[in-house]
């Protein structure tokens, strides 16, 4: 399904004759793969113009008193759905600057949406259940994705030429929890980079 979707995107965007892909492998200091790290590629260092559409659903569901997925990448202006699949009620909120919202107590099978107005990090919590934490990365580039369980992510259909790229993770030790990648250009083929990041223990989630 995922693969099919990727294929479809490639088809849709791959109209331009010159396109390449960037594959980044993210590992922790301990050598373990780091999932849910977001790689963002900016051709010529510029945000994407025009509407951005990612092939995955803009949805963070609540199930088993957990947010799922833990990490969601959405473009600016996206409406993110927060369906409650649990039998208990939740009170979802975010104090993140630019993307503050609060969805007060709503119950089972109810769905709410919130609009992500500004690029940046949206830390989502539940006022009732402290252990519930997830992140939405609101990006202003079309070339962004999060690493899989193996810590690998491939960003496709990146126009050839100079790029800037960075990796972000909520627990990454660094300015804005980001780290710039070494890769600076994309050719016709695949550009690869393995990056090692240092993560810290998440606070308050025992």
């Amino acid at each position: 399904m995922k693969r099919l979707a990727t294929f479809l995107i490639a088809l849709s965007i791959g109209g331009s004759a010159y396109a390449g892909e960037v594959t980044v492998s993210v590992r922790g200091a301990d050598g373990k793969p780091v999932p849910d790290a977001v790689v963002m590629v900016y051709p010529n260092g510029q945000p994407s113009k025009g509407p951005i559409k990612f092939p995955w659903a803009y949805r963070v569901s609540q199930q088993n008193i957990q947010f799922s997925p833990f990490m969601l990448v959405v473009p600016v202006g996206a409406d993110v759905q927060f369906p409650n699949l649990d039998k208990v009620r939740h009170h979802v909120y975010s104090f993140s600057p630019g993307n503050k919202f609060e969805i007060k107590l709503y119950g089972h099978e109810e769905n709410r949406t919130a609009k992500m107005n500004a690029p940046g990090v949206v830390a989502i919590g539940c006022n009732i259940h402290d252990q519930m934490v997830s992140f939405i990365r609101v990006v202003d580039t079309a070339y962004a994705a999060k690493t899989d369980a193996n810590g690998v992510v491939t960003v496709r259909d990146v126009p050839t030429g100079a790029i800037t790229a960075k990796v972000w993770h909520p627990y990454l030790r660094g300015m804005k929890n980001e780290k710039a990648l070494a890769i600076t250009s994309v050719g016709a083929g695949a550009a690869r980079e393995a990056v090692t990041v240092e993560l810290r223990q998440p606070s308050g989630h025992h």
Binding site: F95, A123, G125, C126, D130, V133, S203, G204, H205
Partner: peptide, 9 residues
């Protein structure tokens, strides 16, 4: 005590 909202602030 840490202030979590929900991340550590």
């Amino acid at each position: 005590a840490p202030i979590l909202s929900p991340t550590l602030t």
